[in-house]
Design a protein around this nucleic acid. Sequence first.
DNA 1: CGGCGTTCGATTGCGCACAATCTAATCGGA
DNA 2: TCCGATTAGATTGTGCGCAATCGAACGCCG
Lengths: 150, 150
Amino acid sequence: MADEAPLRLQDHLCFAIYAAAHAFGQAYRPYLEPHGLTYPQYLVLLQLWERDDRTVRELGDGLFLDSGTLTPMLKRMEAAGWVARRRDPRDERVVRVTLTAKGEALRRQARAIPEALGCAARMAPEEMAPLRDSLTLLASRLRGRDEEAG
Amino acid sequence: MADEAPLRLQDHLCFAIYAAAHAFGQAYRPYLEPHGLTYPQYLVLLQLWERDDRTVRELGDGLFLDSGTLTPMLKRMEAAGWVARRRDPRDERVVRVTLTAKGEALRRQARAIPEALGCAARMAPEEMAPLRDSLTLLASRLRGRDEEAG
DNA sequence: CGGCGTTCGATTGCGCACAATCTAATCGGA
DNA sequence: TCCGATTAGATTGTGCGCAATCGAACGCCG
């Protein structure tokens, strides 16, 4: 009976998020590609621009990525000359990632990007903030965190 | 001067979307993995459950994916027995994708998934709809569509 | 000191995603 | 009818993403 029409693809919140993530990736491309950057690499640099000298684990905690993703990405970024990777002498298990001069310089060229994307989205900052906060809360609930954080 | 602190990672709407997409992928995993499904494959099935017998292009238009992604994915889904792929006799360029009996049967088992995820998100449908609509509009703007659709 | 469990990151294998390129089929106009 | 342009998928190469596994380094406890 109700066996038909379980839920249309377009009705799914998860698909709206999936599609928006793809659209953002595509929207960033023309701004990042001239620098040879990909979007996930840009996210790594955003973290390092905010605070330099982070471990692989710290970067992964911030982006929800593990070493299986980060290790090869950071090696590519090292080969491109934006970051340096070296073992912490005090704990040889830890790899610390730092910006090079080239990675620092990229920061200045990248400052215009967020504003450009905001224009492409044609959305005012006042609209973006609650949307962002709703999504952050949703993600934290999906991860099973936040317990009684209400 | 203002050269420091361009924008923190956590302030970016794009990152909130990126992180929410990942969180959804992880949240779906325990429901899909027992069936041997991945999340993008589930999206393909959602489209076919809604209306069977679609071309690769139609599936790609709905999911914003191209043949480079869909061709191998559909081959895996065919190998798993959920769909069949065959050339349209009237236009040999076109590949039509149809559900098998096994793919139809999976539909019934999958009916409980959206509700389960809604519970995991701990979000009422009345909250989800506007969030979904905001994201869909945002994505359409980022794609450069929608022109004066206000 | 010696041994055990933990932590860190690297590695492997698989699947998604996209740009670029290719081939075959179809369509359209001279 | 023939030729060029277009369209649909397939293919190739590169990079992201995750589960599972591994080995080295560390910390603790006796």
